[in-house]
């Protein structure tokens, strides 16, 4: 990137560009986790789902480019990512609802299983280049290449921005949204109403994992746009903290995702202007930020606003 021409202005521009690019996976995973947790279960396994989604999207896009062409193949990849996420979600949804099985432990197991499966199946796709999703070039008004590069927006990001208010509306104003909230807040009351907690949770977890899988597709088909084993580096888990920070509110998930995407861009932005002596520490910024946010927002005494009542309890 020709950021030198901009001098230190390259840093804020780099962070802006990184925010727009890097927040898409956070957004999808956090919306998925939000839906899951609203139903009263935690899914830490979304880290594995993210990797599996990234791998399936990349693999399918690569394998089908011959028949579908470079425009549609990545979209089939996005669908494949969602479907593979649903498959992992179904395992989590079933297992974490067995008696005496802890959903946190199941999530850890699903991280191991999901990432193992993704690395196993993804081995052949590390080398080849798969066709990428198209981007909306909103920076064409500018003659500066870094600005043009910064404003290449993915349609997936816009889709995520649309899903956030949609999910908010779903929770608030639809019958099924009420079911999800009821099951998450007070399973006994939901059962008394004749709602099957198992079914509602299963559907919520599977749908949430579908979104997380698409988050993986953002990674491998948009930014950074490759498939490697280190592509997710804990983003699926940060999303869990992000949902707490966002108080289980989909709209706030959107703002939190932008914040996290920006934090992630600090290291590369400084490196692009030649400041690289603290590269690794800057790269740890999202983790440190997550930890600080949790320290500030959590409290041992009062329950958090928006916390689903049954979250983290056995029933």
């Amino acid at each position: 990137m020709a950021a030198e021409s901009l001098g230190l202005w390259g840093v804020p521009l780099g962070i802006l560009a990184g925010t727009l690019r890097g927040s898409a996976p956070f957004l999808f995973v956090s919306l998925g986790e939000c839906l899951t947790e609203k139903s009263g279960k935690i899914n830490l396994g979304l880290e594995g789902t993210l990797l599996m989604g990234a791998m399936s999207a990349y693999g399918v896009s690569y394998l089908t480019q011959g028949t579908l062409g470079p425009f549609w193949a990545p979209w089939l990849g996005v669908v494949a990512a969602g479907v593979s996420g649903m498959a992992l979600g179904a395992i989590h949804g079933w297992l974490s609802q067995q008696p005496r099985v802890n959903d946190v432990a199941t999530g850890i197991a699903m991280i191991v299983f999901g990432s193992g499966l993704a690395f196993f199946l993804g081995k052949p796709f590390i080398q080849p280049q798969a066709p990428q999703l198209f981007t909306l070039d909103l920076g064409n008004w500018s003659s500066s290449p870094p600005i043009q590069a910064a404003l290449k927006i993915s349609p997936l990001f816009l889709l995520g921005v649309l899903i956030a208010p949609l999910l908010h509306w779903f929770f608030r104003y639809t019958r099924w949204g009420l079911y999800v909230r009821a099951v998450g807040d007070s399973p006994e009351a939901a059962r008394a109403m004749g709602i099957s907690t198992f079914k509602v949770r299963m559907l919520s977890i599977v749908a949430g994992s579908f979104l997380a899988g698409i988050g993986g597709a953002c990674l491998s088909l948009y930014y950074p746009g490759v498939w490697t084993e280190r592509i997710s580096s804990g983003q699926g888990l940060m999303a869990v903290a992000l949902v707490i920070f966002a108080r289980w509110n989909p709209i706030q998930c959107l703002w939190a995702s932008l914040l996290f995407g920006g934090a992630q861009a600090i290291g590369p932005a400084f490196q692009s202007v030649g400041v690289d002596s603290y590269y690794y520490l800057f790269n740890a910024a999202p983790y440190i930020l997550t930890l600080l946010i949790m320290v500030v927002t959590c409290s041992p005494q009062r329950t958090l606003v928006g916390l689903p009542g049954a979250l983290g309890k056995d029933d």
């Binding site: 830490l44 946190v104 850890i108 580096s233 804990g234 888990l237 940060m238 869990v240 903290a241 707490i244 002596s277 603290y278 590269y279 690794y280 520490l281 790269n283 740890a284 983790y287 440190i288 997550t290 930890l291 949790m294 320290v295 959590c298 409290s299 041992p300 005494q301």
Partner: peptide, 30 residues
């Protein structure tokens, strides 16, 4: 953090993994 602030220990301990690895990478690079 768990006891005094009510921070979920699973997530915080996992984040600490990444921070420890970043710290080590920083030290051995510099």
């Amino acid at each position: 953090l768990r006891h005094y602030r009510g921070v979920n220990e699973t997530i915080s301990s996992l984040l600490l993994n990444y921070i420890a690895i970043a710290l080590m990478n920083h030290l051995v690079e510099g």
